[in-house]
Design a protein around this nucleic acid. Structure first.
Length: 550
RNA sequence: GCCUCUGUGGCCAAGUGGUAAGGCAGCGGACUUUUAAUCCGACGAGCGUGGGUUCGACCCCCACCGGAGGCACCA
């Protein structure tokens, strides 16, 4: 238990004061002016204005050089911190205004704010856990050390040692007994009140965004907590987390245009993966039974508020299960992630409250179309009839489309975006779902569902196709499309077929777009807000000229 | 790829044909309980880049570069 006692008591002996005037030593122009010689004054004024005109970066480089001259390393190697700021707050948060504790603490962090009061300076120190005020008094550390503290800049990393106190106004503070510079910032932090507003700069210099914008930190805290929750939930159910190759020899697992790269040692092109599916299902063949991967996939497509060329997918596969177990699993993973990340299963997107708690509505695609539009369309109906329905709805279609594709089109264009509350839309047309297992009762359908929240697809799941003969036939259809010029069509993955021929157990599979889940949980509208370093075009104008050495 | 909007000192931000407000930070000074501290003082940009129109352009036009949103495309 910490012992507290009234303010005023000191943990550290007062630092002896040094008689030297504060600025005289470090400010040559002042001594020059007081010297009175005309030439010297003119020279000093010149020097003075030059100093003022120097860029902030040049001034800081000057400070770095000055420190080195004094034998101080502006970039030392380590600091012994004994607690984080949030730990400090937990321990001493109940102190009353004016109280002080005779315990020395050692904190490290970034100096975010400085308030110079003359013989007293307040600082604001931030570490990863929070912020705390620094109370830096000449009476404690002496004039010289106070001057040195005042010479620090916003953005510098520092370590401090001191006692814990609460000011008259009730602010928990560390009364600094000593401090050291841990890393000197050469560039100034953005406006202390407005922060960094320019979105371009926020994405390119995410380090600055994270430093000054608490909203940015909040989004990524949500992201880390949500992903952590998903991992724990899956692990607790016996799912094994695995890592599979990013470099693929064949294009497959989804329909998307891939990035192609070249592997010199083998003198061949390889694809960056567009999905996790096929390697994971090979592991089901291998008997791992429950596997998942959370990983980056790459699609060579455009960038917009919902698409980044590299993004994060969760895929999970469970042997002996079908898509109905995947429905339960999806509800569980998403609702628990929301709870872990935000403290609530209710999220707010554009002022709309959405409850992610189980159980979600479950409705078949054709029923949902019927309910929303009053239109009865079904993948099994004659194509002429389906076309009439699309005509009636003002939708266009291609001559190659069957009734399944037409049904899906109605759903995509007119229904999906109207679904706000989390909804499991199941039994998709077989025609538009080449990787799912045919429906056990209706072969115009497949056992597939998507989860729609706020009008957007959040998850996609199947009863996985494990019939090698049918899989090969579907691969060949795709290969024909690719040969005909469709860049999104996949290759025939003969090794995958061979794997299926060793028999893959019946299984349910689930994919969740992690970035979109985080958007939902954080209530943000752009995928770039949930990706630390979103893909951007090369920055214009940044050059060596921006980095003069002195 | 197309359309609309947008780019002003380190950051925020006004100005939209007549020769660049203001704030923050930085610099000098005052101040031992501030919390976007306050007060005083001095300083800093020719307005994304390149052309063009004009007596004159940050403001108008064109192209290019970066960014945002939308469309197309895409799960």
């Amino acid at each position: 238990m910490p012992r507290w006692h009234p303010a005023g008591a000191k943990d550290f002996p007062p630092v002896p004061r040094h008689g030297a005037p504060l600025m005289a030593e470090s400010d040559p122009q002042i001594s020059a002016e007081t010297a009175g010689a005309t030439d010297e004054v003119v020279e000093a004024e010149l020097e003075h204005s030059e100093e003022e005109r120097a860029s902030i970066r040049a001034q800081r480089l000057g400070k770095v050089a000055a420190l080195r001259e004094q034998g101080v390393n502006p970039y030392p190697y380590r600091f012994d911190r004994d607690r984080t700021i949030s730990e400090l707050r937990e321990e001493y948060g109940s102190l009353e205004a004016g109280e002080e504790v005779e315990v020395s603490v050692r904190l490290a962090g970034r100096l975010m704010l400085k308030r110079d009061q003359g013989r007293l300076t307040f600082g604001q120190l931030r570490d990863r856990s929070g912020e705390v005020q620094l109370f830096v008094s000449a009476g404690v550390i002496g004039k010289e050390e106070l001057a040195a503290f005042n010479d620090l800049d916003r953005g510098d990393w520092i370590g401090v040692r001191g006692t814990v106190m609460v000011t008259k106004k009730g602010e928990l503070s560390v009364k600094v007994a000593s401090f050291e510079l841990l890393s000197k910032a050469l560039r100034p932090l953005p406006d202390k009140w407005k922060g960094l507003a320019d979105v371009d700069a926020r994405y390119r210099q995410r380090y600055v965004d994270l430093t000054v914008n608490s909203d940015a930190r909040r989004v990524f805290e949500i992201r880390f907590a949500a992903v952590d929750s998903i991992r724990r939930e899956l692990a607790s159910r016996g799912f094994l987390e695995v890592e599979t190759p990013l470099l693929h020899l064949q294009q497959g697992g989804a329909t998307a245009r891939p990035f192609i790269t070249h592997y010199n040692a083998l003198s061949m092109d390889t694809y960056l993966r567009i999905a996790l599916e096929l390697p994971l299902k090979r592991l089901l063949v291998g008997g791992l039974e429950r596997v998942f991967e959370i990983g980056r996939v790459f699609r060579n497509e455009g960038i917009d508020t919902r698409h980044n060329p590299e993004f994060t997918m969760l895929e999970a596969y469970e042997a002996f299960a079908d898509y109905s177990e995947m429905m339960d699993l999806t509800e569980l993973l998403v609702s628990q992630a929301a709870l872990a990340a935000t403290g609530s299963m209710v999220v707010t997107v554009r002022d709309v409250q959405i409850d992610l708690a189980p159980s979600w509505r479950r409705v078949s695609m054709v029923d949902l179309i019927s309910e929303t539009l009053g239109v009865e369309i079904h993948p099994s109906m004659p194509i002429e009839q389906a076309r009439k329905i699309l005509d009636g709805l003002g939708l266009t279609y291609k001559p190659t489309w069957g009734s399944g594709r037409c049904t899906h089109e109605v759903y995509d264009e007119l229904v999906e975006h109207t679904v706000i509350a989390p909804t499991i839309v199941f039994d998709h047309p077989r025609e538009t779902s080449p990787l799912a297992k045919p429906h056990r009762h209706d072969h115009s359908l497949v056992e597939r569902f998507e989860v729609i929240v706020d009008g957007r697809e959040l998850a996609n799941a199947y009863s996985e196709l494990n019939d090698p003969v049918e899989q090969l036939a579907r691969f060949r259809d795709e290969a024909d499309l690719k040969a005909a010029g469709d860049p999104e069509a996949g290759d025939v993955d003969l090794d995958y077929i061979r794997a299926l021929e060793f028999a893959m157990p019946p299984a349910g599979g689930l994919g969740i777009g992690i970035d979109r889940l985080i958007m939902l949980l954080a209530g943000v509208e752009s995928i770039r807000e949930v990706i630390l370093f979103p893909t951007l075009r090369p920055e214009a104008g940044l050059s060596d000229a921006d980095f003069p050495s002195a």
